[in-house]
């Protein structure tokens, strides 16, 4: 393995929803060109954690936080950081496929158009096609690029959402249980895709499937009740966890 490059470092992050504290002093390092998976029982704060990385939690009025999240040495929460431009560097894929009620083409082209990333129609066409290719969807949909994205199957919709996220050329891709609404075949395709994507992108994936975490990720972090219990190489976490809670969860005794 090459020398690991630190991409995101989270230091002592506390998050509150109103009076309720959701995350307690989280410390986590995420490395470039790796897949980091977050596992843990429902409500343990995995989704909250990744939403802090691209500041999606700003949309929740009652959400407050302290602590530090650095991406390439820049503080995400620094007043000079614009959350909108931050989010163009961080793609996000959600639990439920959520294509826009527009054509496939417009779905993928939305981000590039928004940020004026291409100068001509040809450039945009090419970007849309390469994004769909990267998401492994192009061959299946090349004949119906101008049909509504909502007409696709669940798995295809999710890959469309990935293509849409890739089109703005992000550095990091956050995936919030991307396969939980999909069948095993569609899941396998997404996992294959994740494997390919990590060559170029840094991926953080929240998952409820231990097998999935074991299959796709280089590193795993186990969270419980808003605390990060243990994080490390996936191999180590799954074969030789340090913490008893991690072991219990992985072996299915809790959760």
């Amino acid at each position: 393995m090459s020398i690991e490059e630190l991409k995101v470092s989270i230091k002592n992050l506390n998050v509150f929803y109103g009076e309720k504290q959701a995350l307690f002093g989280i410390n986590l390092n995420i490395y470039a060109n790796e897949v980091t998976s977050l596992i843990g029982p429902s409500g343990c704060g995995k989704s909250t954690l990744i939403k802090c990385i691209n500041r999606m939690n700003d949309l929740v009025d009652i959400c407050r936080y302290n602590g530090q999240i650095m991406i390439d040495g820049e503080d995400v929460n620094d007043p000079s950081t614009d959350p909108v431009s931050l989010r163009t560097r961080i793609g996000m894929v959600f639990q439920k496929p959520n294509p826009f009620p527009k054509s496939l083409y417009d779905n993928v082209a939305y981000g590039p158009r928004l940020h004026g990333m291409t100068n001509s129609k040809e450039d945009l066409d090419e970007l849309v096609i390469t994004s769909l290719q990267k998401a492994g969807l192009f061959n299946e949909v090349k004949d119906r690029l101008f049909e509504p994205g909502t007409g696709l199957s669940g798995g295809q919709q999710q890959r469309l959402c990935i293509a849409r996220a890739l089109a703005v050329n992000p550095e990091i891709i956050l995936m919030d249980e991307p396969c939980s609404a999909l069948d095993p075949i569609a899941t396998a395709k997404i996992e294959e895709l994740i494997e390919e994507l990590k060559e170029k992108y840094t991926i953080v994936i929240v998952t409820h499937s231990m097998q999935q975490a074991a299959r796709v990720s280089n590193r795993t972090a186990y969270m419980h009740m808003g605390e990060l219990i243990e994080s490390g190489l996936t191999k180590t976490i799954f074969s030789n966890p340090e913490h008893i809670k991690t072991q219990d969860y992985i072996t299915g005794r809790i959760g």
Binding site: M56, L59, V84, F94, F100, Y110, G111, R164, V168
Partner: peptide, 20 residues
Amino acid sequence: SIEEAAIGLGSSKVQTIFNF
């Protein structure tokens, strides 16, 4: 979910409102 997707792609609040 539609609005989240747009925000996640880096569209501002007002852009999200007028586009979606």
